[in-house]
């Protein structure tokens, strides 16, 4: 039974290795949310290593001591019904461990769902991140710009990603900045994150959504606020605007590289059940609400003037009625039609 012993040594050394290792993405956080998660993970590994140790020690001792080849031929093992004290011990201690982990879980979960501590009084940068067959659209309503397959953010400013999908469920995950969350077609999910170090971080879709899932990677570039403003200005002056026709053809294309636009698709194709103003007054900490609940309260606006985004600068009141982007190009990719249209 040498193998078990070596397995144990292996595991323990890995635990030690993990805590100081920076090549492991999840344990190399670059923002408060990911740091909370990394600490939680390391704490749980330490606790679980203790559990493993107890089980492995008992296991090795009993296997070595009570193997048939070592006992006398006439040895008859005793009849044992159990022992209520021993059983009480191995019920009580796990309950205590679970209780400790439960507290840690509930605390850390509500921490990462909220805006990170120390950043609450800053106005968050809202970015709508939406997925369509195997690409990511990032719309910055505040700046009035949009990118495809890359996300630029300023450091040390809370980012509020609002996630939704033009098709199958996807999951936006930038492991070094925050945990993942689903993007779905009929509601908007909110993911709060802050990058407190400049750098390039890989993001991806982690939820299988069809043939191109493996290619749904994007770069998240955390830059200084100055560089970020410069980039926004540059986009506004150099990039072309995104109109509805172009957006439809974009949606219909399976794979595209990086793209940049000086307007967002939100003006003509709002996010599902958007109620961003209202959300702030609800008690939902993570800012999402069942779309179905809100349907009655917040029907899709009859004209774009009623669509209230956070400081949408370039709503044109003369534009035609809001239409689902994909109505023509792909008959059923339509996240608004369930509102009875």
């Amino acid at each position: 039974m040498k193998k078990r012993g070596s397995l144990l040594v292996l595991f323990m050394s890995l635990v030690l290795l993990l805590s100081g290792c920076s090549s492991i993405t999840v344990l190399d956080p670059k923002g408060p949310a990911a740091r909370t998660l990394s600490d939680t993970i390391l704490f749980s590994i330490a606790m679980m290593a203790g559990v493993l140790l107890v089980v492995y020690v008992l296991y090795v001792v009993f296997l070595v001591k009570y193997r048939g080849s070592k006992t006398k031929d006439d040895y008859m093992p005793p009849h044992e019904e159990g022992n209520k004290w021993l059983e009480a011990i191995w019920i009580t201690i796990p309950i205590i461990i679970v209780a400790v982990l439960s507290v840690v879980t509930v605390q850390s979960t509500s921490t990462v769902e909220k805006v990170a501590a120390g950043y609450e009084d800053q106005k968050p940068l809202v970015v709508y991140a939406s997925s369509s067959n195997w690409k990511w659209h990032f719309s910055y309503p505040e700046e009035g710009i949009e990118t495809v397959n890359y996300l630029n953010i300023p450091v040390n400013r809370p980012i509020e990603l609002r996630l939704y999908s033009f098709g199958p469920i996807t999951s936006l995950w930038i492991p070094q900045l925050a945990g993942q969350k689903y993007a779905m077609s009929d509601m908007v999910n909110t993911l709060n994150l802050v990058a407190d170090e400049q750098g390039s971080y890989l993001g991806r879709n982690s939820n299988f959504s069809g043939q191109g899932t493996a290619h749904m990677e994007f770069e998240t570039l955390a830059m200084s606020p100055g560089a970020y403003s410069e980039w926004v200005e540059e986009v506004k002056t150099t990039a072309s605007a995104l109109d509805e026709t172009e957006f439809k053809s974009l949606l219909a294309t399976s794979y595209v590289g990086r793209k940049t636009f000086s307007s967002t698709h939100l003006t003509f194709s709002p996010a599902p059940g958007d109620h961003s103003d209202h959300m702030k007054h609800t008690d939902m900490e993570n800012g999402n609400k069942e779309h179905q609940e809100n349907k009655a309260e917040h029907p899709v606006p009859a004209n774009p003037e009623e669509t209230k985004f956070d400081a949408v600068p370039n709503v044109n009141p003369n534009e035609p009625l809001p239409q689902s982007p994909a109505e023509d190009s792909n008959s059923d990719i339509d996240h608004t039609s369930h509102d009875g249209k």
């Binding site: 998660l37 993970i41 679980m48 679970v98 921490t111 945990g179």
Partner: peptide
């Protein structure tokens, strides 16, 4: 048990 912790699962889910 580690996966059961919702917060940590945001990093393990689908991996």
């Amino acid at each position: 048990v580690m996966l059961a912790m919702a917060s940590a699962d945001y990093q393990y889910h689908n991996t």
